[in-house]
């Protein structure tokens, strides 16, 4: 049952669109001072948060398959790697767009990226650029044109994107935000486990 659900594209699509709709929920239903006080900030923080969560989630799919090769659930999830990855990019794009609206154009971004460069902003921009390249090269035609090996090498950049996104999220707050640990922590653990597993396998018996 769960496997069937997880295999379903429609189900995954719904899950991916919901965080965008959830944002509209407090707009109409409940009264949130933070939302009225600075609506665009509330919105861009939300989109950035969702982009990070989806990026961390999609990266757990491969290690789950490696660690549990017989699990049908892990297999089902791996059908949706591209979809979830592109969704993460889509939310990152919404995040950047809302941020630009919040800042009233490109002035602040250009200032913080080039005039007086700030690592926090550069990390965010670099993450976005990587996700953009990976999303574009996810088109079937481009995958074929690039060839499997080159494509795979390029798409390893996603690990850099995750590290940069975690950095960006940590430095978005004045104090260390604990949520970063539960967003990226499980991913880090799975990756360590996966590397250990692959090493023990690679060793000749």
């Amino acid at each position: 049952m769960l496997e069937k659900l997880l295999r379903s594209k429609i189900f995954i699509w719904t899950l991916l669109v919901l965080p965008g709709l959830w944002l509209a929920w407090p707009l109409f239903v409940t009264h949130r001072p933070a939302l009225g006080a600075d609506p665009l900030k509330f919105i861009y923080l939300h989109f950035g948060f969702v982009a990070c969560v989806l990026l961390a989630i999609v990266l757990t799919f491969t290690p789950l398959r490696v660690l549990f090769p017989k699990s049908k659930l892990a297999l089902a999830l791996n059908r949706h790697r591209r979809l979830v990855g592109v969704a993460s990019f889509a939310y990152a794009l919404l995040h950047l767009t809302a941020y630009l609206l919040h800042e009233g154009g490109f002035r602040t971004l250009l200032h913080d990226a080039f005039e007086k460069p700030k690592l926090f902003i550069l990390a965010g921009l670099a993450t976005f650029t990587i996700l953009l390249v990976l999303a574009v090269t996810s088109l079937h035609a481009l995958v074929r044109w690039m060839g499997g090996k080159r494509w795979k090498n390029l798409h390893r950049l996603v690990y850099l994107a995750a590290a940069l996104a975690a950095y960006h999220q940590i430095y978005a707050r004045k104090l260390f935000p604990v949520q970063v640990l539960w967003i990226f922590g499980p991913l880090a653990l799975l990756e360590v486990a996966r590397i250990l597993r692959q090493r023990s396998k690679a060793r000749p018996a």
């Binding site: 006080a37 800042e103 602040t108 913080d112 700030k118 926090f120």
Partner: peptide
Amino acid sequence: PRWSQASERIIGGGF
């Protein structure tokens, strides 16, 4: 170190 102070968002200033 992480953001510009050249301008500011007006709280309650709308969208």
